[in-house]
Amino acid sequence: MTNTLHRYGTPESFRDDFVVFAISARGRNDRDCAEKLRAFLRLALPHHPVNLGDASKGALLRGSTTMTPVAHWRRVHQPDPEAVIRGLDGPTTAAVVFDNPAALRAFLEDVRQADLGLSVNISGLTEEARQWAAAAGITRHSVEYSLGFHGPLDRLPDRRILEITTMCGHGMLSANFVKKMLDWVTEGRRRPEEAVAYMARFCTCGVFNPARAKRLLEASAGGR
């Protein structure tokens, strides 16, 4: 999956977007990897990630099958990271998202010391990633660049929508829904944090960045 490779935005727009994920290689180190992946997620918790997820089960916020009408007035948007960690039970991609570089650096240091033996990748600004890794005593192994989108680009939504939809690289977050949320925030029908929680439930692997989405929504609603 290239679920985090093609996030859309200027370099400046990624100042609060740091995705780190761990993955096992099929047939190479995927046996008994679940405990290591759970350990990876647990290492992140003291650094206050804004999202985390298990690509085979789901993220911090998920749709519920047992809603009651009370939810329309008193919706609980309370994430439960321990539930995500407990649910991880086999080979998958475990992802965590931070909104500041200090947390990322501290987390990388913990991951290096834990020596889990799993592949760990940073998805973000590549030069900064190299520097953050070096600060944690890590020399990068490989790099993959996004060359962006090509073809009939008139089929894509506008920049404000793309910046948010591409934070779910699997495409689960619809452009029409983001537009609806942007309109609702602009009209004052929902607060940005509520709109962000609705959107986050559609990103199943936990790489959606609610902090960046909230900032982008607020900027767009403010007439950017």
Partner: peptide
Amino acid sequence: LGGMGHLVYRGKTNLGLGRPAPAA
């Protein structure tokens, strides 16, 4: 890529922390 006019600044960085299990 820069020589081709592509301004590349974002992507994935593999940190090289993985290793095969002993059997592999």
